[in-house]
Amino acid sequence: MSRNKEYAMYWGCWVPSRQPSVEAACRKVLDRFGIGIRDMEGVSCCPDPVVTERLQREMWLALAARNISIANSMGMDLATVCNGCYETFFEAIETLKTDNALREEVKKVLEQIGKPLPSSTVLKHIVEILGQDIGIDEIKNLSTNKLSKLNVAVHPGCHLFRAHDREKVQDKPKLLEDIVDATGAKRIDYGIQRFCCGYPHRVVEEEFSLKMMLAQKLERMWEKDVDCIVVSCPACNIQFEFGQLELKRKYKMSFGEGIPVVHVVELVALALGIKPDEFGLHTHRGPTKNIITKLEK
């Protein structure tokens, strides 16, 4: 099946070097639905919307503009699987549109490296590609391996709420929920979906991030007896997986064997009947094998 649509895929830093299973699942899922992707040659970190942007906005914007410019040169819309990268590109595109002084400065910097200032750019989060380009019904129809035994807690992550209009801030998080529903998994309301996982705070104050933020979410999920957490951001994924290990090691807080965490594309891959070994589900640091055990029961 071909949808005659091809994206310049920006994988970011986390996914290729820490969570290759997300990349593998994404490639297989999009291929299954006839969406083409092409890797972007020579891209750098987006750069991250926390450290680099706060240190020097010009550097952050120039690197983001360079990455977007590479997508432009491929003649394709820009896609990402990461909330943080989405935030950076969203903000960079807006800044280049609205801040004349910064745009001129970035233009001069890009000229020095032989790259043009990005022109009109369409940016898509993987949630939008799954939910809109492919469509909820299509995912539902092709979900051969119904995940109805699986109770999942959805964590959208803060940057997924980024939108041009105030009325649209819930659109992508809602799409994420719809995608999860379409896979057949049972979505559990644990009450604090919107609450941050604590990842950005971790680099500043680890104890606060782990005990006051991450543990709050995990406790609510644990009380609801969820089988796994579904995220749309690799940074949130890392926070949930490594954070549980750290909570156990440093603060003696544990949630059974640990609650496994998967990216939404991995959940869709499972729903489509793609074998976990084919996309390396076992390479997660959390006990993702428990998901398989539950599905095989």
């Binding site: 020097q56 010009e58 550097m59 120039a62 910097v109 020095q112 490296i113």
Partner: peptide, 11 residues
Amino acid sequence: EIHEVARQVKF
């Protein structure tokens, strides 16, 4: 190119 950008903006 990244290094050139860093030098240009004095990062």
